[in-house]
Design a protein around this nucleic acid. Structure first.
Lengths: 167, 167
DNA sequence: AATTGGCATGTTACATTGTAACCGATGCGA
DNA sequence: TCGCATCGGTTACAATGTAACATGCCAATT
């Protein structure tokens, strides 16, 4: 049992059924919002879908452009409100160092935001590493600091881009 | 020896000789730049001093306003170039979640950026916790990810503001 | 001393990202 | 049906960050 059930390593981006993965995310969001009495409106759902489409961090204005195809009247506040809602409900993360947003891998578990961000191909892999969280909690506790939000962002090169760089 | 030489806990913000602490930071910066053959010009030095003055995160445009008292011609590029230089040489950190900058506590050691940021009083305490770094390195290694930059920002309440909140 | 080349800075203009404030529409419970 | 809260439209603007080109300055070389 030692290695069997380990979750897939973040960058094993095995070709996946993307359409399915987006739908899946939307379904889970639906369920989650129902459970919380939160309203996943058409607009919010549309934005969430767009966030998931690219499967990599995307900026608010890029989302806005995309959103306008289906919601022509959309303006900056439109997108920012939707993003605020989605983030508040754990459905997306904001990546501070990129001013960008990405879908959350596992919105059902309360969690923090930890990412490996490739500077070359700009994929961002969510790692929700308990030992990192533990170390951080310990550090914060030691300082008497009450954490409400974690931002952990490691920039660098993903395995694929490293190989390319060597070649 | 176990506990004797521990560095001061981040939020023991014992009233310190601020003027001295700023000068000290500037002196260390001078030394460091000399050693690296980097040019800590008047302008850059002035910006670094302003960053240290407040002893808490400060935005680029606030710095710009302050800088204009001594350098009337300063424009956005002025400040951003100086900040870029200072950050590249480890003299300041950018706090991504605040779009702000703060002086680095120990520029001589190569290090990462780890902060506890109080949402109330907006002080930011640098914690350079090896066990956090270790956990992060391990996580990144496990994913085959080559880290070039760490951003760790914990928002919350500092001990002082917690006490105030309870009262 | 003059030349040249690199770096720092000045200057203008603009791009990107994010918000405030107010309004009407919609839905839902009292 | 009325009142209330939430959602979203709309306008205008604030805050943050950069591109691109011009100028100045110093220092090494000739």
């Amino acid at each position: 049992m030692r290695h069997a059930a380990k979750k897939a390593p973040p960058f094993k981006r095995t070709s996946h059924d993307h359409g399915h993965c987006v739908e899946d995310a939307l379904d889970r969001a639906e369920t989650l919002c129902d459970a919380q009495g939160a309203r996943l409106t058409d607009l919010r759902r549309a934005v969430l879908e767009l966030v998931w489409r690219g499967h990599e961090p995307i900026g608010a204005y890029a989302l806005l452009d995309a959103l306008r195809k289906t919601h022509p009247g959309a303006a900056p506040p439109t997108i920012y409100r939707a993003l605020e809602f989605l983030e508040a409900h754990g459905l997306i993360h904001r990546i501070e160092s990129l001013n960008a947003y990405i879908g959350c891998d596992h919105p059902e578990r309360p969690h923090v935001s930890q990412f490996l961000i490739c500077a070359k191909c700009s994929t961002a892999a969510e790692i929700d590493d308990p030992s990192v969280s533990r170390a951080l909690s310990k550090s914060a506790d030691g300082a008497g600091f009450a954490v409400t939000r974690q931002t952990v962002e490691l920039s660098g090169l993903c395995p694929t881009c490293q190989r390319e760089a060597r070649a």
